[in-house]
Amino acid sequence: VKKMAKAIMADPNKADEVYKKWADKGYTLTQMSNFLKSKTAGKYDRVYNGYVIHLD
């Protein structure tokens, strides 16, 4: 998940494709939050927020 999150950060155009894969795998927002937690607070906030919007 972190590898794909980094791919989104490097190229935001990949976001919809990645979010669809995550949704197809049934990842919940709680799971995504836990996967994307980082020592650098807020590092993956943009990715998480994008997934929230995708699921909505």
Rank of each mutant, 00 (worst) to 15 (best):
V1H: 03
V1A: 03
V1N: 03
K2G: 02
K2C: 14
K2E: 06
M4T: 03
M4A: 10
M4H: 06
A5W: 04
A5S: 03
A7S: 11
A7Q: 13
A7W: 13
M9C: 08
D11I: 06
D11Q: 07
D11A: 06
P12I: 08
P12W: 15
P12E: 08
N13F: 09
N13A: 14
N13R: 14
N13H: 11
K14Q: 10
K14I: 15
A15C: 05
A15T: 06
A15G: 05
D16Y: 14
D16R: 10
D16G: 12
E17A: 11
V18W: 03
V18K: 03
Y19S: 02
Y19L: 00
Y19M: 04
Y19E: 01
K20G: 09
K21L: 15
K21P: 00
K21W: 10
K21V: 14
W22G: 00
W22H: 00
W22V: 00
A23Y: 09
D24H: 10
D24E: 14
D24C: 11
K25R: 14
K25C: 15
G26L: 06
Y27K: 00
T28C: 03
T28K: 02
L29V: 10
L29M: 07
T30I: 13
T30P: 09
T30V: 13
Q31A: 07
Q31H: 08
M32Y: 00
M32S: 05
M32F: 03
M32N: 01
S33E: 12
S33G: 12
S33P: 00
N34F: 14
N34T: 12
N34G: 11
F35M: 12
F35R: 03
L36D: 00
L36E: 02
K37G: 07
K39S: 14
A41I: 13
A41Q: 12
A41F: 11
A41T: 12
A41N: 10
K43V: 07
Y44H: 02
Y44V: 01
Y44L: 04
Y44M: 02
Y44T: 00
D45W: 08
D45F: 06
D45M: 07
R46N: 14
V47M: 02
V47P: 01
V47R: 01
Y48L: 15
Y48A: 02
N49V: 12
G50D: 05
G50N: 03
G50V: 05
G50P: 01
Y51P: 02
Y51M: 01
Y51T: 01
Y51E: 01
V52M: 12
I53G: 06
I53S: 12
I53D: 11
I53A: 15
H54L: 05
D56N: 15
D56S: 15
D56H: 14
